[in-house]
């Protein structure tokens, strides 16, 4: 099934996420799935070496959300993201996709894009062919896929680099190719695992702006793993803070802004208040993790 993009949800206009929750609360079980893209129910993950990476983690991801998973290193953020993507099964618990068609492996067909911490490009293939990959695996011809590939490349500002090879690109450009590849299938859910951790501050801010713009334009749902309070506070309208040992959700913060999230926002009082709030939540999570050790 090819994903049909939902109508763009603009986080600024209409209801805020908080009122969404308030509205959603009295709804019956029949209508809730419409709003939920994916839900984790009591998911635990025990690795074969005895590490309990996740314990009874539950999380509902609602459509159109920009959700950041924030937590100390080793708390299971990547593990949670990989389980959602179907890379490695949960030991117990279920991943539910209420409004997607599920394939034989229990995954929603073509509905998920994944951006790894590293660009993870095929060095032997041009930028064009790297972005073509998901469509090629779906059996789409190169000429048929061309408009979509060029659209995806344009959306990350790399239209002129279709013929380049990964080694000819900078770190930030490689990351953009990786994002274009994740977007080319027009997924409903975009999973990003610390995508910009290895980049310098300026490039990272630029890519943050790009991702935010893409999110606004496409109405895509994003789960963004990060260990940066500032990055998550800038990007998200919901931050889920995780604790370590065992990995669990320990805070769920709605982030609202009155204005645009732009350069001005970065220096605003509002942003500072948000980062303070998030920092405190993270501090608590770190303390809980230390006690659990």
């Amino acid at each position: 099934m090819r994903a049909i993009l939902p109508a763009p949800l603009c986080p600024k206009s209409g209801s805020s996420i908080l009122t969404d929750i308030l509205e959603a609360a009295p709804e019956t079980a029949e209508t809730t799935p419409e709003r939920t893209v994916v839900s984790m129910r009591n998911v635990s993950k025990l690795f074969s070496n005895g590490t309990l990476a996740l314990k009874d983690m539950s999380l509902d991801v609602r459509r159109g959300e920009f959700l950041s998973l924030l937590g100390p290193s080793g708390c299971g953020k990547s593990t949670a993201l990989r389980i959602i993507a179907g890379l490695g099964a949960a030991s117990t618990g279920v991943i539910d996709w209420p409004s997607s068609r599920i394939n034989a492996k229990g995954l929603p067909e073509g509905d998920v894009g994944f951006v790894f911490q590293e660009p993870t490009l095929m060095p032997w293939a041009s930028v064009f062919d790297n972005v073509y990959l998901p469509l090629r695996l779906n059996g789409m011809s190169k000429s048929g896929a061309r408009p979509r590939i060029m659209e995806a490349l344009a959306s990350v500002g790399l239209s002129d680099f279709e013929k380049s090879y990964p080694r000819e690109l900078s770190g930030g450009m490689k990351m953009r190719v990786s994002i274009a590849r994740a977007l080319v299938t027009k997924p409903r859910l975009l999973l990003m695992d610390e995508p910009f951790a290895a980049l310098d501050e300026i490039t990272r801010q630029k890519l943050n702006d790009d991702v935010l713009r893409l999110w606004r334009e496409t109405g895509i749902t994003v789960i963004f793993v990060t260990h940066s309070v500032f990055e998550s506070a800038f990007l998200s309208n919901r931050i889920v803070v995780m604790r370590a040992r065992p990995g669990q959700v320990c805070a769920d913060l709605a982030i609202e802004t009155t204005g645009e999230r732009d350069a001005n926002y970065r220096t605003s009082e509002e942003y500072r208040a948000t980062t303070d709030r998030v920092s405190r939540a993270l501090q608590e999570a770190i303390m809980l993790g230390a006690q659990g050790q």
């Binding site: 990989r82 994944f114 790894f116 299938t185």
Partner: peptide, 8 residues
């Protein structure tokens, strides 16, 4: 992983 994700 990427290939697995796209059901290759």
């Amino acid at each position: 992983n990427l290939f697995e994700l796209y059901g290759a």
